[in-house]
Simulated scan of single mutants.
Amino acid sequence: MAVLALGVFAVGTGEFVLAGLLPMLVEAFEISVAGAGQIVTVFALTCAVSAPVLTALTAVWRRRTVLVMATVIYLLGAVGTALAGSYGQILAAQIVAAAGVGLFIPNASVTAATLVAPRLQGRAIALVVTGFTAAVAFGAPIGTALGGLLDWRATMWFTAALAVIGLVGVWVLVPEHLHVPSAGGLRAQLRPLGDRRVLLLLVTTLVAFTAVFVPYTYIGVIYAPATGGSGVALAVLMLTGGIAGAVGNLAAGFLTDRLGGARVVTIALSWLTAGLLVVPLAVGHFGAALAVVGFYVVGAFAITTPQQHRLIGLRPDATPIVISLNQSVLYLAIAMSGLVGGAGIELLGSRYVSLVAAALALLALGASLCAQRLMRPTSASGAGV
């Protein structure tokens, strides 16, 4: 299980470090901030599309083969980015890297859930998702610091090195003959969208993570008064949020096994909303910013595990499908966060853009409760699903 988390950490670092590299790319290739931001958008959209498509194409493969191939694809993209000589080459290389990420992360979660008893699935998924939060907590700040000390290419070589370590770990430690039930081709992959309960859970993920990533995407802008434009201060802020996110995710895993996914999502979204509402009061002081970021990120990263657990419990016959769809929607949310956050900053200013995110978190809570209500008549455990 730990090796799956390591793999997620490796590929996730390459994704989240992009936000810290954007100023360097603007300078290196003489492009606009908006143009540099499109790298993040293209990466996220590629992940969103590749997760269900590549999962369908590899549905009957052994899990180790799928995970190894995904890591190799990501590694090729990371190396291609490090060697890129133009903005267009970076975009092309990041599309390749994103395809690997889109295939790896949902299959890592499915593999983890397959390796344990049903009563431990929440904790297993949480351990894998910890790699995702660790990428935010440690990988992205380290990569950003490397870029500042050396250059952005050094950061991409760092992410490539992490991918090599993850590749070796998956090859050695994931059981060779492990399979998960195949759900068929792409049409079958999309069939769960006809289930209103699945659709509402995916809407919950979409809106919730748009709320989560609005303040993350624009963290440097929002907290510029607190950090004074210091890259080191910003890295500390990101590190604090990442550590808090890891704590929230692990806690969510244990609570999901005890309380059920629906209740944990309700708690997490309520927590997130409360934290986002007080962000405007903390943007001018670094200590206050650390405290507020540490608070609301606990709720932000406590959403993923119970959402995946709910989907597995709802459609155990289509576990790989619903997990890949959920991951696709999460990446679509990352792409949307840039657009929504940018519009919010234009409308309200960077100090108050978190209020837009808070409104989205409330909408996500409403969608989650609606899904819970629909699930109640057909679920033996009711709200605990």
Rank of each mutant, 00 (worst) to 15 (best):
A244Q: 04
A117W: 05
R310N: 13
T58M: 14
F254P: 13
N107F: 04
L45Q: 13
L178E: 08
L360H: 02
G166V: 04
L250M: 13
A251V: 15
L76T: 07
P118F: 06
M375G: 12
A28L: 09
W152G: 11
T304R: 09
I321L: 14
R376F: 01
A335Q: 15
Y216G: 00
V174H: 08
A367S: 15
P181E: 12
P52S: 05
A335I: 11
G169R: 08
A183L: 06
I323T: 15
T71L: 04
L360N: 01
L83T: 13
Q121S: 07
L339A: 13
A251P: 12
L22K: 13
R258P: 05
T144G: 07
A246N: 15
V207F: 14
L330G: 14
A51I: 15
V279N: 07
A335Y: 15
G349Y: 01
G169C: 05
P118I: 03
V279A: 09
D151A: 06
L259T: 14
L76G: 05
R191F: 05
P225Q: 01
I219S: 01
I142S: 05
I267G: 08
A274T: 14
Q307R: 04
L178A: 08
V172H: 05
A335R: 13
L190A: 09
V116G: 12
T81M: 02
V33N: 10
D195H: 13
L332Y: 10
G253P: 14
V49D: 04
N107K: 03
I219Q: 01
F16S: 00
W152N: 10
L54W: 01
V297I: 08
A251N: 07
L18Y: 01
F29C: 08
V353W: 07
Y296T: 04
I90A: 03
E346I: 08
R196N: 06
I165K: 15
L363E: 05
V168N: 10
Y218T: 00
R373E: 00
V33H: 03
L347E: 05
G284L: 02
L103W: 03
G228T: 08
G169H: 04
G143H: 08
L18W: 00
P215T: 02
C47L: 11
L269M: 06
G231Y: 07
G338Y: 02
A78W: 00
G338F: 00
L311C: 11
C47T: 15
A134H: 02
V247M: 05
M69W: 03
T46A: 12
T205Y: 10
G148L: 14
G241K: 02
A78D: 15
V385F: 09
